[in-house]
Amino acid sequence: MTTTTADVPGPSPLSAPLSVLGTIWATLRLLARNRVSLIGMIGVSFYLILVFVLPYIIPLDDTVKVDLIYAPPSLTHPFGFDSQGKDVFSQIVHGGRELIAVAVGAAVVSTLVGTALGGFSGVLGGKVDSSLMLLTDVWLTIPQLPLLIVMAAFIRVSGPATLILIIGLLSWASLTRAVRAQVLSIKERDFVEAARVLDLGTTHIVTREVLPNMVSYLTINFILAITSAMYFQTALVFLGLVPLAGTNWGIMLRFAYTRGAIFARDSFWYIMAPVLAISFFQLSLVALERGVAEVFNPRLRS
């Protein structure tokens, strides 16, 4: 008799994470069937391997080699050498991790803030809603890149954490507005009405009824937030407004520009390496976003 409890497939501590994994697996398989999102997924996986796995295999070339300045690409050095004779490819491999981490971090911050504020606004309504929306409208009007440039003058960007916070707290407004609109529309649906009739409480309604219906929407926004954080961050680095320490694609662009490599004929691949790295990162994310949008919203498949 003591074994019966074990036989029943009850709520074991592993079942919740397993079902989440199952959902993720099913979603990925669904995405792989769409051509655009497949391209995006391949691109994103490529970048994950490039910046999180390859740095452990390919060492960063940090020695100045005068005889190799702007040496052309070869099989062992696919992007040639830079203005100091350092291998460009190893810089690409090592120069993405921090950028991508900051971009994802900033996207997490702005998505959390945007969802929380938009949710509050939509659920509470009334005075809170109208004043939050006024603030959102005003914030949306302030040009973001100039604000970021001005902020860089006041706040000493000491490390990735500061950058994540500044960029994340800059771009919450459009999501706030969109989430509020979503909440307002979902609030009126029948299943929410049913939950209300059953007296399931606000917490249940928000976490179990409203939020799950916004997951695809939030995912799409999250991916776009990563691309815009990448844009802002690299712009700051390129302008030289954040301290240039270490190696990243933005710093490579900056040096290529300030050291005149951009205007020299020999340094073509030195410029193109960070240009391609940043562009294809943005393109893969946008492809993934389009794919996700098409998969979750069949009306877009025209």
């Binding site: 691309t227 712009a235 951009i262 410029i271 193109m272 562009s279 943005q282 994310l285």
Partner: peptide, 16 residues
Amino acid sequence: ATTSIPNYIVGILIIV
């Protein structure tokens, strides 16, 4: 593609 590539990258490509 052109809307997702950062504008300063497009500018650099134009110069190059």
